[in-house]
């Protein structure tokens, strides 16, 4: 199976004062449809940069990012905008810039393309999918952190994306909210075949992912292959047709 998203030898650095800080070094990562991949790292490790580069919201200094086989660097601005509206959902818990009701906020990405009536129907559907239908008339400020995460996911999935990029969805959530949000993301991958690449601030949030990695000092570390399975029952994430698509620098060399 071809990966939907593929990062090859991606590098990125920033100037911090007189010094250059390299946040990604030679990062290789593939995400296939129906896979949830979680990248753990401490604050400032470059997790958000990794997601932004995956969506071409930032340009890498080196390397290639492909979506559905297309090198994102070759897209024109309009093509990229269309891609972000239709195929890539960007989920972060920043909320709307204006004081919108949540139904308006979730409908926004579809308004121009589908018109008001259809966009609102899709927004209601997305809110229902994440279990937040009753918050349609509420405003961002009145929601709890857990509710904000769920609404942000609804805002991401309303465009029926192939790929969801999710930035720290479980920061500051309690155990119950965290399990709910992560369970939802896993079900979006399992049941709807969405490829999900998410960054997480703590390890419990890794538990629902198909594959895990950690990012630190620019290196994307991937756990070593596991010992042979003793159970006769195959693990859920190794169904036929699924591919493990995380590669460390050492493994790709």
């Amino acid at each position: 199976m071809n990966p939907l998203l593929s990062l090859e030898a991606v590098g990125k650095s920033y100037l911090r004062g007189p010094h250059r800080l390299r946040v990604l070094k030679d990062v290789a990562l593939d995400v296939a449809a129906g896979q949830l991949i979680a990248v753990w790292g401490k604050r400032g490790a470059g997790k958000t940069t990794l997601l932004k580069i995956a969506a071409r919201l930032e340009k890498p200094d080196q390397g290639v990012v492909r979506f559905d086989g297309v090198d994102l660097a070759t897209l024109r601005e309009a093509e990229h905008t269309r891609l972000m509206l239709e195929k890539i959902g960007w989920v972060r818990r920043a909320g709307p810039k204006s004081d919108l009701e949540m139904l308006d906020y979730v409908a926004l990405p579809r308004l121009a393309e589908r018109g008001r009536r259809q966009a609102y129907a899709l927004a209601r559907e997305a809110l229902e999918r994440v279990g937040m239908a009753e918050c349609a008339g509420q405003r961002w400020g009145s929601l709890s952190d857990g509710e904000r995460s769920l609404v942000a996911i609804a805002h991401g999935i309303v465009r029926a994306p192939k790929l969801l990029l999710v930035d720290d969805p479980t920061a500051n959530l309690d155990v119950i909210e965290r399990e709910q949000v992560n369970g939802l993301l896993r079900s979006l991958a399992d049941e709807e075949g969405i490829a999900v690449l998410m960054t997480v601030p703590d390890m419990p949030a890794l538990m629902h992912a198909h594959h895990i990695a950690s990012l630190s000092g620019g290196r994307l570390a991937v756990p070593p292959p596991e010992p042979p399975e003793l159970s006769h029952e195959p693990p859920r994430d190794e169904e036929p047709g699924r591919v493990i698509q995380l590669r460390s620098r050492e493994q790709s060399a």
Partner: peptide, 28 residues
């Protein structure tokens, strides 16, 4: 040290897999 990081990640992955074999726990 990097090798030890991979060992830690491997243990997290093992824990994840052992949980996947159970019915998903309901924290409620």
């Amino acid at each position: 040290v990097y090798g030890q990081e991979l060992v830690c990640l491997g243990r997290v992955q093992e824990l994840k897999r052992s949980f996947e074999r159970l019915r998903p726990p309901d924290p409620k």
